[in-house]
Design a protein around this nucleic acid. Structure first.
Lengths: 205, 205
DNA sequence: AAATTTCCATACGGTGGCGTATTGACTGGC
DNA sequence: GCCAGTCAATACGCCACCGTATGGAAATTT
């Protein structure tokens, strides 16, 4: 038998030794629910059932872990967007897909929402700025493709994205979590109607 | 002469001894620029040119200060809103005043924006929830007064407030501060146009 | 001018987290 | 079966901050 420890360390499955990715994922889980400040190596180690002796084998320090975790999140998020949004050719459908995705209760949103709170942290600030600029560009392009003039497309993209960010906050503030009920569905529908060009004119005044 | 210390303690004016309000204001300044976590009693004392011996004379502990500071902020903010917004009878002008105030670079916004980031903290969460509910009610009322049906007024208020919150975040994320330039003016103008009822109909579909 | 109140300094112990150093145990390759 | 590599436990020193205890000085009261 080549399984490593014949005694299960704490709960289920024979735990093999941890990989760098395991630490990153654990960090992301903590970020999603508690924020950057709670990503502390000793508590995290306890969470994973080891001590920090292990941590400092995988990472040189705490910052190193944060960078790696954020990079991992960013890549996964980007691949989702590329697969589910940017691949859509019809700009109206693409925009709808944006709104639809935004209303979905994904861990990625949870992480983004928490990162917004931790924007003081230099590493977080850098990541946020990058991802925000990127998404704004995509949104602007969508509105451009719908016939908006560049400047108006920019404003509209900013507006739409503000609604997204604002919603994330409101949900957490008012309910302590991201909603999953029908209420959000109705609201998302309403928002989409407000933020998408009316049928009556392609190029609004 | 009844001035207290004939030698200026550190910079200007003969510093009399500190009041509770002084500590609260200092805390709010730190909150505005660095967030709750940086409101630490020893650093704050250093900032005020005293030691924490003073602090624990005025407050029983750190939490006590936070509560007091937030209460102070909330009251000042509320009085601004009552004076500059709620007093306006014409609902359209009132709404315009909301958007106008939102675009102003006030310390109150700065604080609110930072508090959004610190919503993990129980005391902050409570404060935020209260103030959000309050403001949403005011906004909803404004839209009601404009002829919106209750449900739509609620949605619209939520949307408008999300834009406000989202904008605060975007500004900080993209520029590291609240903008004061003409750009924000134009954007505010654009947003107002989008979020206020069109001239063509009082009661939008 | 003495007493009391108000405000502050200093010193102390406690906690939680970071990062280092060292040792140990299990693994696969030879 | 030995060795090198991989992952983890333990112990240590450090720092920042919290809260307490105690004493002292200036201001105010009497």
């Amino acid at each position: 038998m080549n399984k490593r420890q014949n005694a299960a360390r704490k709960s289920e499955k024979q735990k093999k030794s941890l990989s760098t990715a395991d630490w990153e994922e654990a960090a992301l889980d903590v970020i999603a629910h508690q924020g950057i400040s709670q990503v502390a190596v000793e508590p995290l180690a306890k969470l994973l059932g080891v001590t920090k002796g292990s941590f400092y084998w995988h990472f040189s320090n705490r910052l190193d872990l944060l960078k790696a975790a954020l990079k991992r999140w960013r890549e996964s998020d980007r691949s989702i967007i590329e697969r589910d949004i940017l691949s859509i050719e019809d700009p109206l459908k693409r925009l709808k897909a944006w709104f639809n995705l935004s209303a979905q209760p994904l861990r990625s949103h949870l992480i983004y929402s928490t990162l917004l709170a931790d924007r003081q942290h230099p590493v977080v600030a850098k990541t946020l700025k990058e991802i925000t600029v990127e998404r704004l560009a995509h949104l602007q392009q969508a509105y451009r493709d719908l016939g908006y003039e560049p400047e108006q497309a920019r404003q509209q993209a900013l507006l739409a994205y503000s609604v997204y960010v604002g919603y994330l906050h409101m949900a957490k503030t008012l309910h302590g979590r991201l909603q999953d009920s029908e209420a959000i569905e109705k609201y998302a529908q309403y928002v989409a109607e407000q933020l998408m060009p009316k049928q009556t004119s392609q190029k609004p005044a």
